[in-house]
Design a protein around this nucleic acid. Sequence first.
DNA 1: GCTTGACATTGACGCTGCGTCAAGCTTTAG
DNA 2: CTAAAGCTTGACGCAGCGTCAATGTCAAGC
Lengths: 252, 252
Amino acid sequence: MDWSIQEIARLAGTTSRTLRHYDDIGLLAPARIGSNGYRYYDEPALVRLQRVMLLRELGLGLPAIGEVLDREESAPHALRSHLEWLRQEQERLARQIASVEHTITALEGGERLMAENVFDGFDHTRYKEEVEQRWGKDAYAKSDAWWRSMSAEQKAAWQERASDLGRDWIAAHDRGIDPTGDEAQALAQRHFEWLRGIPGTPGGGGQGPTKEYFVGLAEMYVADERFGANYGGRAGAEFVRDAMTAYADRNL
Amino acid sequence: MDWSIQEIARLAGTTSRTLRHYDDIGLLAPARIGSNGYRYYDEPALVRLQRVMLLRELGLGLPAIGEVLDREESAPHALRSHLEWLRQEQERLARQIASVEHTITALEGGERLMAENVFDGFDHTRYKEEVEQRWGKDAYAKSDAWWRSMSAEQKAAWQERASDLGRDWIAAHDRGIDPTGDEAQALAQRHFEWLRGIPGTPGGGGQGPTKEYFVGLAEMYVADERFGANYGGRAGAEFVRDAMTAYADRNL
DNA sequence: GCTTGACATTGACGCTGCGTCAAGCTTTAG
DNA sequence: CTAAAGCTTGACGCAGCGTCAATGTCAAGC
Protein backbone atom coordinates (compact mmCIF):
# COMPACT_ATOMS: atom_id res chain seq x y z
CA MET A 1 0.00 0.00 0.00
CA ASP A 2 2.96 2.32 -0.31
CA TRP A 3 5.30 3.46 -3.00
CA SER A 4 8.98 3.89 -3.56
CA ILE A 5 10.40 7.34 -4.03
CA GLN A 6 10.43 7.06 -7.80
CA GLU A 7 6.87 5.89 -7.96
CA ILE A 8 5.43 8.63 -5.84
CA ALA A 9 7.50 11.16 -7.72
CA ARG A 10 5.96 10.07 -10.98
CA LEU A 11 2.49 10.02 -9.49
CA ALA A 12 2.84 13.60 -8.34
CA GLY A 13 4.72 14.78 -11.38
CA THR A 14 8.01 15.61 -9.77
CA THR A 15 11.43 14.07 -9.18
CA SER A 16 12.99 11.94 -6.51
CA ARG A 17 15.57 14.64 -5.88
CA THR A 18 12.80 17.03 -4.96
CA LEU A 19 11.32 14.54 -2.55
CA ARG A 20 14.62 14.02 -0.83
CA HIS A 21 14.92 17.77 -0.58
CA TYR A 22 11.49 18.05 0.98
CA ASP A 23 12.48 15.39 3.45
CA ASP A 24 15.70 17.22 4.27
CA ILE A 25 13.94 20.47 5.05
CA GLY A 26 11.17 18.73 6.94
CA LEU A 27 8.40 19.64 4.55
CA LEU A 28 7.39 16.11 3.67
CA ALA A 29 8.70 13.06 5.48
CA PRO A 30 8.21 9.58 4.06
CA ALA A 31 5.66 7.36 5.81
CA ARG A 32 8.40 4.99 6.82
CA ILE A 33 12.03 4.25 6.16
CA GLY A 34 13.12 0.69 5.47
CA SER A 35 16.02 -0.97 7.23
CA ASN A 36 17.91 -0.38 4.02
CA GLY A 37 17.40 3.33 4.31
CA TYR A 38 14.90 3.51 1.46
CA ARG A 39 12.05 5.99 1.73
CA TYR A 40 8.51 4.65 1.37
CA TYR A 41 5.44 6.85 1.02
CA ASP A 42 1.79 6.08 1.73
CA GLU A 43 -1.38 7.75 0.62
CA PRO A 44 -1.56 10.54 3.23
CA ALA A 45 1.94 11.45 2.18
CA LEU A 46 0.81 11.51 -1.43
CA VAL A 47 -2.08 13.80 -0.56
CA ARG A 48 0.27 16.13 1.23
CA LEU A 49 2.65 16.03 -1.69
CA GLN A 50 -0.12 16.89 -4.10
CA ARG A 51 -0.94 19.90 -1.98
CA VAL A 52 2.66 20.95 -1.89
CA MET A 53 2.83 20.76 -5.66
CA LEU A 54 -0.34 22.78 -6.00
CA LEU A 55 0.95 25.54 -3.77
CA ARG A 56 4.27 25.48 -5.54
CA GLU A 57 2.53 26.11 -8.82
CA LEU A 58 0.97 29.14 -7.23
CA GLY A 59 4.47 30.37 -6.54
CA LEU A 60 4.59 29.99 -2.77
CA GLY A 61 7.91 29.38 -1.10
CA LEU A 62 8.57 26.11 0.66
CA PRO A 63 8.55 27.55 4.21
CA ALA A 64 5.22 29.24 3.53
CA ILE A 65 3.85 25.98 2.17
CA GLY A 66 4.92 24.19 5.30
CA GLU A 67 3.03 26.64 7.49
CA VAL A 68 -0.06 26.50 5.35
CA LEU A 69 -0.18 22.73 5.44
CA ASP A 70 0.44 22.47 9.15
CA ARG A 71 -2.27 24.94 10.02
CA GLU A 72 -4.68 24.86 7.17
CA GLU A 73 -6.78 27.78 8.40
CA SER A 74 -3.87 30.05 7.61
CA ALA A 75 -4.10 29.26 3.92
CA PRO A 76 -6.29 32.19 2.81
CA HIS A 77 -4.17 34.63 4.73
CA ALA A 78 -0.94 33.28 3.33
CA LEU A 79 -2.35 33.27 -0.17
CA ARG A 80 -3.52 36.82 0.16
CA SER A 81 -0.16 38.18 1.17
CA HIS A 82 1.40 36.07 -1.55
CA LEU A 83 -1.02 37.65 -3.99
CA GLU A 84 0.12 41.05 -2.87
CA TRP A 85 3.70 40.13 -3.59
CA LEU A 86 2.78 38.74 -7.00
CA ARG A 87 1.05 41.99 -7.91
CA GLN A 88 4.07 44.02 -6.93
CA GLU A 89 6.28 41.80 -9.01
CA GLN A 90 4.02 42.31 -11.96
CA GLU A 91 4.18 46.07 -11.57
CA ARG A 92 7.93 45.93 -11.36
CA LEU A 93 8.02 43.91 -14.55
CA ALA A 94 5.69 46.35 -16.25
CA ARG A 95 8.01 49.20 -15.41
CA GLN A 96 11.03 47.27 -16.63
CA ILE A 97 9.30 46.45 -19.87
CA ALA A 98 8.45 50.09 -20.45
CA SER A 99 12.04 51.09 -19.73
CA VAL A 100 13.48 48.49 -22.04
CA GLU A 101 11.19 49.53 -24.85
CA HIS A 102 12.13 53.13 -24.31
CA THR A 103 15.80 52.27 -24.37
CA ILE A 104 15.49 50.27 -27.56
CA THR A 105 13.80 53.07 -29.45
CA ALA A 106 16.37 55.52 -28.12
CA LEU A 107 19.21 53.32 -29.32
CA GLU A 108 17.65 52.85 -32.71
CA GLY A 109 17.24 56.60 -32.94
CA GLY A 110 21.01 56.74 -32.90
CA GLU A 111 21.55 57.67 -29.29
CA ARG A 112 24.29 56.19 -27.22
CA LEU A 113 23.66 53.97 -24.26
CA MET A 114 24.35 56.83 -21.89
CA ALA A 115 25.87 60.28 -21.83
CA GLU A 116 29.63 60.17 -22.10
CA ASN A 117 30.25 62.79 -19.51
CA VAL A 118 28.81 61.82 -16.22
CA PHE A 119 29.75 65.09 -14.61
CA ASP A 120 28.26 67.43 -17.10
CA GLY A 121 27.29 70.40 -15.04
CA PHE A 122 23.76 69.82 -16.17
CA ASP A 123 24.26 66.75 -18.24
CA HIS A 124 23.17 68.34 -21.45
CA THR A 125 21.71 65.21 -22.88
CA ARG A 126 19.78 63.79 -20.03
CA TYR A 127 18.24 66.92 -18.60
CA LYS A 128 17.57 68.79 -21.81
CA GLU A 129 13.83 68.67 -21.49
CA GLU A 130 13.65 69.62 -17.86
CA VAL A 131 15.99 72.52 -18.38
CA GLU A 132 14.06 73.80 -21.37
CA GLN A 133 10.78 73.47 -19.60
CA ARG A 134 11.84 75.28 -16.47
CA TRP A 135 14.21 77.89 -17.81
CA GLY A 136 13.36 78.24 -21.47
CA LYS A 137 14.89 77.04 -24.70
CA ASP A 138 17.18 79.97 -24.79
CA ALA A 139 18.81 79.10 -21.51
CA TYR A 140 19.47 75.56 -22.63
CA ALA A 141 20.88 76.62 -25.97
CA LYS A 142 23.28 79.07 -24.35
CA SER A 143 24.45 76.60 -21.81
CA ASP A 144 24.86 73.94 -24.42
CA ALA A 145 26.85 76.15 -26.73
CA TRP A 146 29.09 77.18 -23.87
CA TRP A 147 29.76 73.58 -22.99
CA ARG A 148 30.49 72.52 -26.51
CA SER A 149 32.90 75.36 -26.96
CA MET A 150 35.23 74.02 -24.31
CA SER A 151 38.19 71.81 -25.04
CA ALA A 152 38.41 68.38 -23.56
CA GLU A 153 40.87 69.63 -20.96
CA GLN A 154 38.68 72.48 -20.01
CA LYS A 155 35.78 70.12 -19.67
CA ALA A 156 37.82 67.79 -17.52
CA ALA A 157 38.82 70.65 -15.26
CA TRP A 158 35.20 71.70 -14.97
CA GLN A 159 34.15 68.21 -14.13
CA GLU A 160 36.76 67.95 -11.49
CA ARG A 161 35.46 71.07 -9.85
CA ALA A 162 31.98 69.58 -9.96
CA SER A 163 33.07 66.31 -8.45
CA ASP A 164 35.17 68.04 -5.81
CA LEU A 165 32.15 70.01 -4.83
CA GLY A 166 30.08 66.88 -4.65
CA ARG A 167 32.64 65.15 -2.50
CA ASP A 168 32.86 68.03 -0.12
CA TRP A 169 29.10 68.20 0.21
CA ILE A 170 28.99 64.52 1.01
CA ALA A 171 31.80 64.80 3.51
CA ALA A 172 30.10 67.74 5.19
CA HIS A 173 26.86 65.86 5.43
CA ASP A 174 28.59 62.80 6.81
CA ARG A 175 30.13 64.85 9.56
CA GLY A 176 26.64 65.79 10.60
CA ILE A 177 27.16 69.54 10.64
CA ASP A 178 24.39 72.11 10.57
CA PRO A 179 23.37 73.07 7.01
CA THR A 180 22.83 76.65 8.13
CA GLY A 181 26.18 76.85 9.90
CA ASP A 182 29.33 78.51 8.65
CA GLU A 183 30.94 75.51 7.06
CA ALA A 184 27.91 74.52 5.05
CA GLN A 185 27.31 78.12 4.05
CA ALA A 186 30.85 78.31 2.75
CA LEU A 187 30.12 75.32 0.58
CA ALA A 188 26.92 76.94 -0.64
CA GLN A 189 29.01 79.95 -1.54
CA ARG A 190 31.34 77.72 -3.57
CA HIS A 191 28.34 76.17 -5.23
CA PHE A 192 27.12 79.63 -6.16
CA GLU A 193 30.46 80.59 -7.60
CA TRP A 194 30.58 77.39 -9.54
CA LEU A 195 27.22 78.11 -11.12
CA ARG A 196 28.28 81.64 -11.90
CA GLY A 197 30.65 80.15 -14.42
CA ILE A 198 27.84 78.81 -16.56
CA PRO A 199 26.30 81.08 -19.14
CA GLY A 200 22.65 80.40 -19.82
CA THR A 201 21.72 80.17 -16.18
CA PRO A 202 19.31 82.95 -15.32
CA GLY A 203 21.59 85.64 -14.04
CA GLY A 204 24.56 83.51 -14.90
CA GLY A 205 27.82 84.77 -16.28
CA GLY A 206 27.65 88.12 -14.58
CA GLN A 207 26.66 88.47 -10.99
CA GLY A 208 25.64 84.80 -10.70
CA PRO A 209 22.38 82.87 -10.73
CA THR A 210 19.17 84.42 -9.50
CA LYS A 211 17.68 83.45 -6.18
CA GLU A 212 14.80 81.74 -7.88
CA TYR A 213 17.10 79.63 -10.01
CA PHE A 214 19.37 78.78 -7.12
CA VAL A 215 16.52 77.60 -4.90
CA GLY A 216 14.80 75.79 -7.75
CA LEU A 217 17.98 73.89 -8.50
CA ALA A 218 18.33 72.97 -4.83
CA GLU A 219 14.86 71.50 -4.84
CA MET A 220 15.60 69.61 -8.01
CA TYR A 221 18.53 67.88 -6.33
CA VAL A 222 16.06 66.42 -3.88
CA ALA A 223 13.22 65.72 -6.28
CA ASP A 224 15.31 64.05 -8.96
CA GLU A 225 17.47 61.20 -7.83
CA ARG A 226 19.68 61.52 -10.88
CA PHE A 227 20.92 64.79 -9.44
CA GLY A 228 20.78 63.64 -5.86
CA ALA A 229 23.11 60.77 -6.62
CA ASN A 230 25.94 63.30 -7.02
CA TYR A 231 25.49 64.33 -3.43
CA GLY A 232 25.26 60.97 -1.76
CA GLY A 233 21.63 60.10 -2.37
CA ARG A 234 18.45 61.50 -0.95
CA ALA A 235 19.67 62.45 2.51
CA GLY A 236 22.72 64.11 1.04
CA ALA A 237 20.62 66.04 -1.46
CA GLU A 238 18.37 67.26 1.32
CA PHE A 239 21.33 68.51 3.22
CA VAL A 240 22.56 70.38 0.16
CA ARG A 241 19.13 71.83 -0.43
CA ASP A 242 18.83 73.09 3.12
CA ALA A 243 22.20 74.73 2.97
CA MET A 244 21.56 76.31 -0.43
CA THR A 245 18.13 77.55 0.57
CA ALA A 246 19.52 79.16 3.71
CA TYR A 247 22.27 80.74 1.64
CA ALA A 248 19.79 82.14 -0.86
CA ASP A 249 17.61 83.60 1.88
CA ARG A 250 20.52 85.47 3.37
CA ASN A 251 22.46 86.58 0.34
CA LEU A 252 20.34 86.70 -2.81
CA MET B 1 41.96 62.16 -11.37
CA ASP B 2 40.58 58.91 -10.02
CA TRP B 3 38.46 57.69 -7.17
CA SER B 4 38.60 55.12 -4.45
CA ILE B 5 36.17 52.26 -4.45
CA GLN B 6 33.85 53.91 -1.97
CA GLU B 7 33.76 57.13 -3.86
CA ILE B 8 32.91 55.65 -7.21
CA ALA B 9 30.34 53.44 -5.56
CA ARG B 10 28.59 56.45 -4.16
CA LEU B 11 28.84 58.30 -7.45
CA ALA B 12 27.15 55.46 -9.26
CA GLY B 13 24.70 54.67 -6.50
CA THR B 14 25.93 51.22 -5.58
CA THR B 15 28.19 49.56 -3.03
CA SER B 16 31.85 48.69 -2.86
CA ARG B 17 30.94 45.04 -2.49
CA THR B 18 29.23 45.15 -5.84
CA LEU B 19 32.27 46.73 -7.44
CA ARG B 20 34.53 44.05 -6.06
CA HIS B 21 32.13 41.49 -7.42
CA TYR B 22 32.19 43.07 -10.86
CA ASP B 23 35.96 43.00 -10.72
CA ASP B 24 35.94 39.34 -9.71
CA ILE B 25 33.77 38.29 -12.61
CA GLY B 26 35.60 40.49 -15.06
CA LEU B 27 32.73 42.83 -15.78
CA LEU B 28 34.43 46.00 -14.61
CA ALA B 29 38.09 46.21 -13.69
CA PRO B 30 39.51 49.21 -11.87
CA ALA B 31 41.66 51.58 -13.87
CA ARG B 32 44.64 50.70 -11.74
CA ILE B 33 45.55 48.94 -8.55
CA GLY B 34 47.83 50.63 -6.06
CA SER B 35 50.86 48.97 -4.54
CA ASN B 36 48.73 48.62 -1.42
CA GLY B 37 46.20 46.55 -3.31
CA TYR B 38 43.57 49.30 -3.37
CA ARG B 39 41.35 49.65 -6.41
CA TYR B 40 41.25 53.03 -8.12
CA TYR B 41 38.78 53.97 -10.84
CA ASP B 42 38.98 56.66 -13.50
CA GLU B 43 36.34 58.28 -15.60
CA PRO B 44 36.05 55.71 -18.39
CA ALA B 45 35.49 53.17 -15.66
CA LEU B 46 32.79 55.36 -14.19
CA VAL B 47 31.08 55.64 -17.56
CA ARG B 48 31.14 51.90 -17.95
CA LEU B 49 29.81 51.48 -14.45
CA GLN B 50 26.96 53.86 -15.14
CA ARG B 51 26.05 51.79 -18.15
CA VAL B 52 26.18 48.63 -16.14
CA MET B 53 23.85 50.12 -13.58
CA LEU B 54 21.46 51.25 -16.27
CA LEU B 55 21.27 47.81 -17.83
CA ARG B 56 20.90 46.24 -14.43
CA GLU B 57 17.86 48.38 -13.77
CA LEU B 58 16.43 47.02 -16.97
CA GLY B 59 16.80 43.57 -15.50
CA LEU B 60 19.61 42.21 -17.64
CA GLY B 61 21.92 39.60 -16.22
CA LEU B 62 25.57 40.38 -15.66
CA PRO B 63 26.91 38.12 -18.43
CA ALA B 64 24.50 39.72 -20.89
CA ILE B 65 25.59 43.16 -19.76
CA GLY B 66 29.19 42.23 -20.34
CA GLU B 67 28.47 41.22 -23.91
CA VAL B 68 26.46 44.32 -24.61
CA LEU B 69 29.17 46.61 -23.35
CA ASP B 70 31.97 44.85 -25.17
CA ARG B 71 30.19 44.95 -28.48
CA GLU B 72 27.78 47.81 -28.27
CA GLU B 73 26.06 47.11 -31.57
CA SER B 74 24.57 44.02 -29.98
CA ALA B 75 22.61 46.09 -27.49
CA PRO B 76 19.30 46.31 -29.38
CA HIS B 77 19.34 42.62 -30.07
CA ALA B 78 20.10 41.73 -26.48
CA LEU B 79 17.46 44.09 -25.22
CA ARG B 80 14.90 42.66 -27.55
CA SER B 81 15.40 39.11 -26.44
CA HIS B 82 15.42 40.33 -22.88
CA LEU B 83 12.12 42.03 -23.56
CA GLU B 84 10.74 38.76 -24.79
CA TRP B 85 11.73 37.06 -21.57
CA LEU B 86 10.22 39.87 -19.51
CA ARG B 87 6.92 39.48 -21.32
CA GLN B 88 6.87 35.75 -20.69
CA GLU B 89 7.55 36.34 -17.04
CA GLN B 90 4.68 38.74 -16.88
CA GLU B 91 2.34 36.23 -18.46
CA ARG B 92 3.46 33.61 -16.01
CA LEU B 93 2.75 35.97 -13.16
CA ALA B 94 -0.65 36.78 -14.59
CA ARG B 95 -1.53 33.11 -14.64
CA GLN B 96 -0.29 32.62 -11.13
CA ILE B 97 -2.30 35.57 -9.91
CA ALA B 98 -5.45 34.20 -11.51
CA SER B 99 -4.83 30.81 -9.96
CA VAL B 100 -4.22 32.23 -6.52
CA GLU B 101 -7.38 34.29 -6.69
CA HIS B 102 -9.32 31.27 -7.79
CA THR B 103 -7.90 29.21 -4.96
CA ILE B 104 -8.72 31.83 -2.38
CA THR B 105 -12.36 32.07 -3.40
CA ALA B 106 -12.59 28.30 -3.47
CA LEU B 107 -11.18 28.05 0.03
CA GLU B 108 -13.50 30.72 1.34
CA GLY B 109 -16.38 28.87 -0.26
CA GLY B 110 -15.57 26.08 2.16
CA GLU B 111 -13.67 23.78 -0.16
CA ARG B 112 -10.60 21.91 0.92
CA LEU B 113 -7.21 22.57 -0.51
CA MET B 114 -7.45 19.55 -2.73
CA ALA B 115 -9.50 16.41 -3.18
CA GLU B 116 -8.73 13.85 -0.49
CA ASN B 117 -8.68 10.93 -2.84
CA VAL B 118 -6.03 11.36 -5.42
CA PHE B 119 -7.04 8.22 -7.24
CA ASP B 120 -10.70 8.88 -7.69
CA GLY B 121 -11.54 7.15 -10.92
CA PHE B 122 -12.79 10.45 -12.23
CA ASP B 123 -12.01 12.63 -9.30
CA HIS B 124 -15.55 13.66 -8.70
CA THR B 125 -14.68 17.08 -7.38
CA ARG B 126 -12.11 18.28 -9.82
CA TYR B 127 -13.66 17.13 -13.06
CA LYS B 128 -17.31 17.70 -12.29
CA GLU B 129 -17.76 20.43 -14.84
CA GLU B 130 -15.97 18.71 -17.65
CA VAL B 131 -17.86 15.52 -17.08
CA GLU B 132 -21.21 17.28 -16.98
CA GLN B 133 -20.43 19.25 -20.07
CA ARG B 134 -19.31 16.33 -22.14
CA TRP B 135 -21.55 13.57 -20.92
CA GLY B 136 -24.48 15.30 -19.29
CA LYS B 137 -25.53 16.01 -15.75
CA ASP B 138 -27.20 12.68 -15.51
CA ALA B 139 -23.99 10.80 -16.14
CA TYR B 140 -22.17 12.76 -13.51
CA ALA B 141 -24.92 12.30 -10.94
CA LYS B 142 -25.02 8.55 -11.48
CA SER B 143 -21.30 8.20 -11.27
CA ASP B 144 -21.15 10.37 -8.22
CA ALA B 145 -23.86 8.45 -6.42
CA TRP B 146 -22.15 5.20 -7.24
CA TRP B 147 -18.90 6.44 -5.80
CA ARG B 148 -20.47 7.78 -2.64
CA SER B 149 -22.26 4.53 -2.05
CA MET B 150 -19.01 2.65 -1.62
CA SER B 151 -17.37 1.99 1.71
CA ALA B 152 -13.90 3.29 2.41
CA GLU B 153 -12.49 -0.16 1.81
CA GLN B 154 -14.28 -0.56 -1.44
CA LYS B 155 -12.99 2.82 -2.48
CA ALA B 156 -9.47 1.88 -1.51
CA ALA B 157 -9.73 -1.31 -3.52
CA TRP B 158 -10.95 0.64 -6.49
CA GLN B 159 -8.18 3.13 -6.20
CA GLU B 160 -5.64 0.40 -6.05
CA ARG B 161 -6.94 -1.04 -9.27
CA ALA B 162 -6.72 2.38 -10.82
CA SER B 163 -3.17 2.94 -9.65
CA ASP B 164 -2.13 -0.55 -10.71
CA LEU B 165 -3.45 0.16 -14.13
CA GLY B 166 -1.58 3.44 -14.21
CA ARG B 167 1.63 1.80 -13.18
CA ASP B 168 1.30 -0.92 -15.78
CA TRP B 169 0.64 1.62 -18.48
CA ILE B 170 3.73 3.54 -17.47
CA ALA B 171 5.84 0.40 -17.35
CA ALA B 172 4.61 -0.65 -20.79
CA HIS B 173 5.41 2.72 -22.22
CA ASP B 174 8.85 2.73 -20.63
CA ARG B 175 9.63 -0.58 -22.26
CA GLY B 176 8.99 1.08 -25.56
CA ILE B 177 6.51 -1.45 -26.91
CA ASP B 178 4.10 -0.86 -29.75
CA PRO B 179 0.78 0.62 -28.58
CA THR B 180 -1.05 -1.41 -31.17
CA GLY B 181 0.73 -4.63 -30.22
CA ASP B 182 -0.64 -7.47 -28.14
CA GLU B 183 0.67 -6.36 -24.79
CA ALA B 184 -0.65 -2.83 -25.03
CA GLN B 185 -3.95 -4.10 -26.37
CA ALA B 186 -4.28 -6.36 -23.35
CA LEU B 187 -3.83 -3.32 -21.16
CA ALA B 188 -6.46 -1.45 -23.13
CA GLN B 189 -8.73 -4.38 -22.51
CA ARG B 190 -8.12 -4.11 -18.79
CA HIS B 191 -8.80 -0.42 -19.01
CA PHE B 192 -12.07 -1.16 -20.72
CA GLU B 193 -13.06 -3.66 -18.06
CA TRP B 194 -12.15 -1.21 -15.39
CA LEU B 195 -14.43 1.43 -16.86
CA ARG B 196 -17.22 -1.10 -17.21
CA GLY B 197 -17.41 -1.09 -13.44
CA ILE B 198 -18.53 2.53 -13.33
CA PRO B 199 -22.20 3.32 -13.69
CA GLY B 200 -22.93 6.61 -15.33
CA THR B 201 -20.46 6.10 -18.11
CA PRO B 202 -22.29 5.99 -21.41
CA GLY B 203 -22.82 2.29 -21.92
CA GLY B 204 -21.32 1.63 -18.54
CA GLY B 205 -22.52 -0.96 -16.10
CA GLY B 206 -23.69 -3.34 -18.74
CA GLN B 207 -21.65 -4.13 -21.80
CA GLY B 208 -19.11 -1.40 -21.03
CA PRO B 209 -18.46 2.11 -22.30
CA THR B 210 -19.35 3.15 -25.81
CA LYS B 211 -16.70 3.60 -28.45
CA GLU B 212 -17.28 7.32 -28.46
CA TYR B 213 -16.81 7.59 -24.74
CA PHE B 214 -13.76 5.38 -24.73
CA VAL B 215 -12.00 7.34 -27.45
CA GLY B 216 -13.05 10.67 -25.97
CA LEU B 217 -11.60 9.67 -22.65
CA ALA B 218 -8.38 8.64 -24.33
CA GLU B 219 -8.08 12.05 -25.91
CA MET B 220 -8.79 13.70 -22.61
CA TYR B 221 -5.83 11.94 -21.06
CA VAL B 222 -3.63 13.71 -23.55
CA ALA B 223 -5.39 17.04 -23.56
CA ASP B 224 -5.66 17.43 -19.79
CA GLU B 225 -2.45 17.08 -17.90
CA ARG B 226 -4.32 16.37 -14.69
CA PHE B 227 -5.34 13.06 -16.22
CA GLY B 228 -2.13 12.53 -18.06
CA ALA B 229 -0.16 12.74 -14.83
CA ASN B 230 -1.58 9.36 -13.87
CA TYR B 231 0.07 7.83 -16.87
CA GLY B 232 3.50 9.29 -16.61
CA GLY B 233 2.94 12.69 -18.20
CA ARG B 234 2.31 13.72 -21.74
CA ALA B 235 4.27 11.04 -23.54
CA GLY B 236 2.73 8.36 -21.37
CA ALA B 237 -0.75 9.69 -21.99
CA GLU B 238 -0.16 9.68 -25.71
CA PHE B 239 0.91 6.09 -25.55
CA VAL B 240 -2.26 5.20 -23.63
CA ARG B 241 -4.37 7.12 -26.08
CA ASP B 242 -2.85 5.36 -29.07
CA ALA B 243 -3.41 1.98 -27.50
CA MET B 244 -6.97 2.78 -26.46
CA THR B 245 -7.87 4.22 -29.84
CA ALA B 246 -6.55 1.16 -31.63
CA TYR B 247 -8.47 -1.02 -29.23
CA ALA B 248 -11.68 0.91 -29.86
CA ASP B 249 -11.27 0.69 -33.62
CA ARG B 250 -10.94 -3.04 -33.49
CA ASN B 251 -13.39 -4.03 -30.81
CA LEU B 252 -16.07 -1.41 -30.26
C1' DG C 1 25.49 -18.22 -6.82
C1' DC C 2 26.82 -14.67 -9.84
C1' DT C 3 26.23 -10.92 -12.90
C1' DT C 4 23.71 -7.15 -14.52
C1' DG C 5 20.91 -3.26 -14.50
C1' DA C 6 17.73 -0.40 -12.24
C1' DC C 7 17.04 2.11 -8.20
C1' DA C 8 18.33 3.60 -3.56
C1' DT C 9 21.44 6.22 -0.29
C1' DT C 10 24.32 10.30 1.42
C1' DG C 11 27.32 14.11 0.32
C1' DA C 12 28.61 18.17 -2.14
C1' DC C 13 29.04 21.62 -5.84
C1' DG C 14 26.51 24.87 -9.09
C1' DC C 15 23.53 28.71 -10.20
C1' DT C 16 22.33 34.57 -9.34
C1' DG C 17 24.02 38.66 -7.33
C1' DC C 18 25.55 40.33 -4.19
C1' DG C 19 24.84 41.15 1.71
C1' DT C 20 27.25 40.32 5.56
C1' DC C 21 30.65 39.16 8.85
C1' DA C 22 35.70 38.24 9.88
C1' DA C 23 40.65 38.99 10.31
C1' DG C 24 44.11 41.97 9.19
C1' DC C 25 46.71 45.87 6.69
C1' DT C 26 46.69 51.15 5.25
C1' DT C 27 45.58 55.68 5.19
C1' DT C 28 43.97 59.77 7.32
C1' DA C 29 42.57 63.06 10.75
C1' DG C 30 43.50 64.96 15.21
C1' DC D 1 51.14 58.53 17.93
C1' DT D 2 46.66 56.75 18.11
C1' DA D 3 42.02 56.04 16.83
C1' DA D 4 38.84 55.93 13.22
C1' DA D 5 37.96 55.03 8.51
C1' DG D 6 38.65 52.52 4.62
C1' DC D 7 40.85 48.91 2.05
C1' DT D 8 42.07 43.99 1.16
C1' DT D 9 41.00 38.86 0.55
C1' DG D 10 38.24 34.95 1.94
C1' DA D 11 34.00 32.57 2.89
C1' DC D 12 29.15 31.63 4.22
C1' DG D 13 24.18 32.52 3.08
C1' DC D 14 20.06 32.58 0.29
C1' DA D 15 15.95 29.37 -2.96
C1' DG D 16 15.20 25.27 -4.89
C1' DC D 17 16.50 21.95 -6.54
C1' DG D 18 19.79 19.78 -10.97
C1' DT D 19 23.55 17.15 -11.43
C1' DC D 20 27.45 14.32 -10.75
C1' DA D 21 30.01 11.02 -7.63
C1' DA D 22 30.82 7.05 -4.92
C1' DT D 23 28.52 3.28 -3.09
C1' DG D 24 24.84 -0.01 -1.29
C1' DT D 25 20.36 -2.95 -2.62
C1' DC D 26 17.07 -5.46 -5.01
C1' DA D 27 14.89 -8.28 -8.70
C1' DA D 28 15.77 -11.10 -12.55
C1' DG D 29 18.16 -14.15 -15.67
C1' DC D 30 21.85 -17.68 -16.41
